[in-house]
Amino acid sequence: MLTSMAMLLLMGLLLGRVFRALHLPSLIGMIITGILLGPYVLNWIDSEILSLSGELRQIALVIILTRAGLSLELSSLKKVGSASLLMSFLPATFEIISITILAPLLLGMDTVSAMILGSVLAAISPAVVVPRMLKLMDEGYGNNYAVPQLIISGSSLDDVFVIVLFTVFASLSASEGIQFSSFLRIPVSIILGILLGVVIGIIFVYFSKMFHMRDSVKITILLSISFFLLEIENILTDYIPISGLLAIMAMGTTIHYQYPLLAKRFSLKYDQLWVVAEIILFVLVGASLNISYVGNVGIKSIVLIILALGVRMLGVYFSIIKTDFPKKEKLFTILAYTPKATVQAAIGGIPLAMGLPFGEEILAISIVAILLTAPLGAFLIDSTYKKLLSR
Rank of each mutant, 00 (worst) to 15 (best):
A83P: 09
K340L: 07
F169V: 01
Q258R: 14
G54A: 12
P357R: 04
E73S: 15
Q344K: 11
V283G: 05
K78Y: 13
S319T: 11
D110E: 13
M30E: 15
L77Y: 11
G154Q: 06
G315W: 00
E278L: 02
G201V: 00
L262F: 12
I255V: 15
I347G: 14
H23P: 05
S4Q: 05
G69Q: 09
I334A: 03
M249W: 07
S390R: 13
L85H: 13
D138I: 02
Y257W: 09
I291M: 14
I59L: 12
I235G: 13
Y141S: 11
L236M: 12
L37C: 11
T237Y: 11
I255F: 10
L229D: 13
V168P: 00
L136T: 10
F358W: 04
S181Y: 08
I248A: 02
G154D: 01
Q272L: 05
G355M: 10
V128F: 00
L121N: 03
L363Q: 14
V276L: 04
G177Q: 02
M210A: 10
M30V: 10
V129A: 00
I190F: 02
P326F: 00
L37S: 05
L230N: 12
I320W: 01
D324W: 00
L268K: 08
A369G: 08
V276D: 01
L388P: 11
N143K: 15
L245C: 09
N43S: 14
L134F: 07
G142D: 13
E176M: 12
P351M: 08
M313T: 00
D158G: 08
R391V: 01
L268Y: 00
L289E: 04
P351G: 09
A114V: 01
A247K: 08
T384W: 04
H23R: 15
L376Y: 06
A341D: 01
S47R: 13
D46V: 07
L52W: 12
K78A: 13
A83Y: 01
V18D: 07
L307Q: 01
S84D: 03
Y206E: 15
S288L: 03
R214G: 07
M133L: 09
P375D: 03
T66M: 15
E329Y: 02
M11W: 02
L52Q: 15
Y337F: 15
V164A: 05
L134M: 10
S76A: 11
I279F: 00
S301R: 11
E231V: 06
A21E: 13
I232C: 07
I194L: 09
S208L: 04
Y141T: 09
P39G: 14
E55M: 07
A250D: 12
S155Y: 04
L195V: 14
F161N: 06
S182H: 04
A353F: 03
D110C: 02
D159I: 06
L223E: 10
F379C: 03
